[in-house]
Design a protein around this nucleic acid. Structure first.
Lengths: 240, 240
DNA sequence: CTCAAAAACTTGTTTAAACAACATTGACTT
DNA sequence: AAGTCAATGTTGTTTAAACAAGTTTTTGAG
């Protein structure tokens, strides 16, 4: 699917890194070598490398080379990372997913909601709540608020399957940027009613805003996770 | 301090975005306009813009322009984000920080520890635990494990102030990449003994590995946070 | 006026080149 | 033998140019 040359190179190198073609701690072939191998310009190589650096696969060392810092890890339980739907995550982890829609309504944004979500006052919104179950246990409570104008034709039936699939394939809208905040909150009465929290009194909360390819925010989400089924991975690179 | 031209432009644009020189939802001046303004090449502008996009300030729209998606937000309590030390975070939030060192030992990595941390077996390690307090309340339990060979001369006295300051300014070592995992864990006996958790039975845990400018991992960290003083922010961009 | 095509403007990708800055190697001098 | 310095190899920054691929505006035909 990737049409750009640097994307091909990026994927090819990433695969080789995950295969441990170059082991952890070693140096990659030099940029000029890679230029010969992939028959492209140095800029194109550097673009692929910089994506891999951002994701914590490699780190370049001025005057020396590019070090492999990727370590294979056992995929523990539930991992949230990039922008991935519940369906995709479940498939990757070989879980049997199920979704129960417990609320599906249309409301206008009042002042409080506008302030919290970032939508403009008075906008018509879909407001829905869903419980995500894995192997029969209720583990995630998802609250989604959509801009009705940008997600027309949404129904509870679609919400039961995959909203993202509907948005991307049926509506042809592309999801581009997602801004998220992770916090730990005390379980509310609703949380305890909807989820199988056992004797936990807290949960992991991901709050986020999603933007489409026009740079318009069309979704506000709150995903409330059972602690045992939450793991978020991240790589940070220190800027001067 | 930034010596590169694109870094200057990046910081200048970032400041203007935070000043709301261009409001949320509007389009930035075109790349060619910015080329004239900053008297540089288009590539240099694009490099600055791509950093801002990664951080969730802007989003480019093919054929149309660059949309501002930055929204000013009230800095709520404690925010962890990039690679920032406790000292820096405390200063930014105007807290009075205090640190108590409760363990400072030198141990070799045994098999279990090697597997967990990613250090090689037998490596000499500094093992330390510290409690971070804010306004008299014990809120964070930090476990730091350093490669002794790369952090020579570390003492409990330094650990009480700022280890990062020592590493960067005294040793001249630069911190570059940090790989992190965020989870929610039940409070252990030690957690309850060391921290003022109130009636919380969980805490937010950041587990991470830190790499220096040679691409060598020199630190393994676990930061165990009181739920009320934990907030992690992130921006993700969907790749094709 | 309406509509369609063309032009102009926008961001996206790729190449080529030059130079700067840092690291290593090896030859040379002392 | 030890240290110095030059050459070479590596990544880092910047420029210039050309074309591709979207979006908007203008032009012109009917």
């Amino acid at each position: 699917m990737p049409k750009a040359k640097y994307e091909d190179i990026y994927h090819n190198l990433k695969e080789k890194l995950e295969n441990e073609t170059w082991p952890y701690g070693s140096l990659l072939p030099s940029e000029n070598t890679l230029v010969s191998v992939y028959e492209c310009s140095r800029n194109t190589i550097r673009r692929a490398l910089s994506s891999l650096a951002e994701e914590g696969y490699i780190q370049s060392i001025h005057g020396k080379g590019v070090r492999v810092i990727y370590q294979p890890l056992e995929r523990t339980a539930f991992t949230v990372g990039g922008i991935e739907s519940f369906q995709e995550t479940a498939r990757r982890n070989h879980f049997q997913p199920a979704t129960k829609v417990i609320q599906f309504s249309v409301v206008p944004a009042d002042e409080a909601m506008a302030k919290e979500t970032g939508f403009a006052m008075g906008e018509e919104l879909f407001f829905l709540r869903r419980v995500r179950c894995i192997d029969g246990k209720a583990l995630i409570l998802d609250i989604n608020i959509f801009l009705k104008a940008l997600v027309p034709g949404l129904t509870p039936e679609i919400a039961e399957k995959s909203i993202y699939e509907y948005i991307e394939n049926k509506l042809g809208m592309q999801i581009v940027t997602s801004k998220r905040k992770i916090t730990v909150e005390r379980a509310s009465k609703t949380d305890r009613e909807c989820l199988d929290l056992g004797d936990y009194d807290c949960l992991a909360v991901i709050t986020g805003q999603t933007f489409n390819s026009d740079g318009i925010m069309f979704e506000y989400t709150q995903s409330r996770h059972h602690p045992d089924y939450f793991c978020f991975q991240d790589t940070a690179i220190r800027k001067r």
